[in-house]
């Protein structure tokens, strides 16, 4: 078997084709939304939304409504409550987050206990099951990409403004509160659709690690987003191939590769910094 055969082989299975399509779209979505998450310091919110939507998924299962809806309601609700709790009490944002998401998560654990048969689906929710993406899930992802794309086309400059200088934007008359809520909505949406790929525990990596890696090399917004998308695409594709041939869980493999990219980029960046510093000293 030559290398081309090896690269093509996975595509003979429908589920692998759907998996590749799914992770590619998710990588694009996370590249866009993740850059904003990283710039605004919302990484914890992404994590909290992911854990909280687990509670929403369990309740949706029990009630019998589409799981994505339950996840979205719980996820977005948590993001909004965090903002409210932060305003109303003297608690730090990350403390409020931890309280809310463990609360929503424990509701999920309790709900699960009432139906013993669910335990099997549970681990797939937590570690993800990109190989079992159904066509309907793909449509959710496509819809999320379209929504994020439209929002960015219309409001990109404003969102960038509030991300870098919220008080300046406020003074310039932008509805900062609404734009922030919109951004939280996008975070919730992309977390919920990406849950399928890597699961509740690792989803935050898909959002912030590519953006964090890209931010080591550039400070320009357009390049950050493009870089994050590229980095995400490389890791998700390589991760899917690796998991196909090594029989490892795809979600964890993808995140391990993302982290590896970040580690390598960090070392490259630090070495370059040191070299330029030395060069500067010699020149002086």
């Amino acid at each position: 078997m030559n290398i081309l055969d090896a690269l093509v082989e996975p595509f003979q299975f429908g589920f692998m084709v759907r998996a590749f399509a799914g992770v590619s779209l998710i990588a694009v979505l996370s590249g866009i939304v993740g850059t904003f998450i990283m710039l605004r310091g919302l990484a914890f919110i992404g994590d909290a939304v992911a854990h909280a939507s687990f509670g929403g998924i369990v309740l949706a299962m029990l009630v019998g409504i589409p799981l994505h809806i339950g996840a979205l309601v719980f996820g977005f609700g948590t993001a909004l409550l965090v903002a409210a709790l932060e305003r109303k009490t003297k608690l730090q944002a990350d403390t409020s987050l931890a309280i809310l998401f463990t609360g929503a998560f424990s509701i999920g654990v309790l709900g699960l206990a009432t139906r013993p048969g669910f335990a099997g689906d549970l681990s797939s929710l937590l570690v993800g099951s990109v190989l079992s993406i159904r066509p309907a899930d793909l449509w959710w992802i496509v819809a999320a990409v379209i929504v994020a794309g439209l929002v960015m086309m219309v409001l990109f400059r404003r969102l960038v403004y509030i991300s870098f200088d919220a008080s300046g934007a406020e003074a310039a008359g932008l509805p900062v509160g609404w734009l922030h809520t919109l951004l939280l909505g996008l975070v919730a949406l992309s977390v919920v659709v990406s849950l399928q790929a890597v699961g509740a525990i690792l989803v935050v990596a898909l959002l912030i690690t590519p953006a964090a890696t890209a931010s080591l090399f550039t400070k320009r917004m357009e390049r950050l987003i493009a870089g994050a998308i590229g980095i995400g695409l490389v890791a998700t594709w390589a991760g899917l191939y690796a998991s196909y041939y090594l029989a490892t869980p795809p979600g964890a493999t993808i995140v391990a590769l993302l982290t590896l990219q970040f580690g390598c980029a960090l070392i490259v960046q630090k070495t370059r910094e040191r070299v330029t510093k030395k060069g500067a000293v010699h020149a002086a």
């Binding site: 990283m38 310091g41 914890f44 690792l202 990596a205 912030i208 964090a212 979600g251 493999t253 995140v255």
Partner: peptide, 19 residues
């Protein structure tokens, strides 16, 4: 940023554990 540092670290270590 601190939140990014935490997010990258724990997801990376957890994923490595799972793999």
């Amino acid at each position: 940023r601190e939140d990014a540092a935490i997010g990258v670290t724990f997801t990376g270590l957890f994923a490595l554990g799972v793999v």
